[in-house]
Each structure stands twice: as structure tokens, then as C-alpha cells.
């Protein structure tokens, strides 16, 4: 799996709980040296070791933890670039939801060897969506739910989210969009630069 993904886990722990906590996680997962390089690739096997270690050290359930990681990815000032890149996907939350189908392609366009799990949006009735997430990693659906929760706020939309366990290896996020223009949300200036 790509170093960017591993590095995101590390940054989540470091930014939310501090370097010492990360060192505990790294020691438990046998990562030496205890740092991930964003631009290198790592063994896929390592992912569950890291996530298990994170759960053990923080004493948190996988799903809860992953949802928090997802929220972190699009709300922390240190990850502003991720939020900006997602906002390029659409003008409003609904637009953004439809752009998620392209997310793996968009990621590959930016970093050619970056593979993220496939996601697929289905629209049932007006304002009713389900996002089918392939989950090679247990909890990926939760992570997407964390991302969507924050992005809905970011766009100023009011939406209800629910996670449903699908068949093995896939999660379904049910999305009920109640109001697109519920609040002002955060501004997105096309020409600004993420620092």
C-alpha cells in the first residue's frame, strides 16, 4: 500500500495524540525506523498491524477509530491539501458525491502508483444515495463515513449518514441529503494554495 496512506495513519496519531503515542503504536506494530515515508511503498500486510496497534494503544474499536481518521483527513489544518483536492470534485455536496466514483482515478492522476479502494455511488430517490465501498481493509467504510460527515459540513449541507455492512469485503454508506444549502459551510477559493 502507498506510503501516503500509512503516513496518514501516522499523522493522525501524531497530530491528535502526540509523538509519544505514535512511538508506542510503531513499537507495537514493529515498525523500524518508526516513521513512514509518504513517497515510498510498503507491504500491504503492514496495514492491519498498524491499525491493530492503533486500536490497542488508544483502546478504541476499529470502526470508531477509522471514522475519526476519515474526519481528520479532511478537517485538520495539516491535511488541508486533501480537503482542497476533494473540493475540486464539485460545486455542492451532491456534485461532490457524484465525483466520488472518480476518486481512485483522480488519486492515480496525482500519484501514479497510488491505489485506493473502489467506491461507487448509487442514487435511489431524490436525496437518497448509497456509497458502496470496497474494503480491503476492515473499516474503510467507516473511514469514508468520517470523510463524508466533514465534507457535508464543509459544503454546508445537512445529511444523515449510516453504515451498513454489505457482503464480505464491502461496506455501504447510506446517505440521506436533507438540505444542500443548510449552512454557509467553509469557503473554497479555487485559486488559493494549500500550504
Amino acid at each position: 500500500m502507498h506510503g501516503l496512506i500509512y503516513r496518514s495513519f501516522q499523522n493522525y496519531i501524531t497530530d491528535s495524540y502526540g509523538r509519544d503515542t505514535w512511538l508506542q503504536v510503531a513499537a507495537r506494530a514493529n515498525i523500524s525506523p518508526p516513521d513512514f515515508e509518504a513517497m515510498l511503498s510498503y507491504d500491504d500486510e503492514l496495514a492491519s498491524a498498524v491499525l491493530n496497534a492503533m486500536g490497542d494503544v488508544l483502546r478504541r474499536e476499529r470502526g470508531d477509530l477509522m471514522e475519526d481518521v476519515g474526519a481528520y483527513l479532511v478537517s485538520h489544518p495539516n491535511t488541508e491539501a486533501v480537503r482542497r483536492l476533494l473540493r475540486f470534485g464539485g460545486m455542492n455536496f451532491e456534485d461532490f458525491l457524484h465525483s466520488l466514483d472518480d476518486l481512485p482515478d483522480r488519486a492515480r492522476m496525482a500519484v501514479s502508483d497510488m491505489a485506493i479502494p473502489a467506491i461507487e455511488l448509487h442514487e435511489h430517490a431524490a436525496g437518497c444515495f448509497s456509497l458502496i465501498c470496497e474494503t480491503p481493509l476492515e473499516g474503510f467504510g467507516h473511514l469514508m463515513m468520517g470523510v463524508l460527515r466533514v465534507m457535508a459540513d464543509d459544503y454546508g449541507a445537512l445529511a444523515l449518514l449510516d453504515l451498513e455492512r454489505g457482503s464480505v469485503g464491502r461496506d455501504i454508506v447510506r446517505i440521506q441529503l436533507i438540505e444542500t444549502d443548510y449552512s454557509h459551510g467553509r469557503t473554497f477559493d479555487l485559486g488559493a494554495r494549500a500550504s
Binding site: 482542497r84 483536492l85 492522476m109 496525482a110 479555487l190 485559486g191 494549500a194
Partner: peptide, 26 residues
């Protein structure tokens, strides 16, 4: 201070801006 709405839906300008930003970050 242009936004998505200032470009035609088929215009690749937004994709171009996305790419520039993504590539700069990478």
C-alpha cells in the same frame, strides 16, 4: 476569483487546477 461555475461544464480548467495542486503536493 473565478469558481467552477465560471467555466463550461466540459472545460478541463478545473481538472487542470486540480492536477497542478495535486502534483505540487506530491
Amino acid at each position: 476569483a473565478l469558481t467552477n461555475a465560471d467555466f463550461a461544464a466540459t472545460d478541463l480548467a478545473i481538472e487542470m487546477l486540480y492536477l497542478v495542486e495535486a502534483k505540487s503536493a506530491a
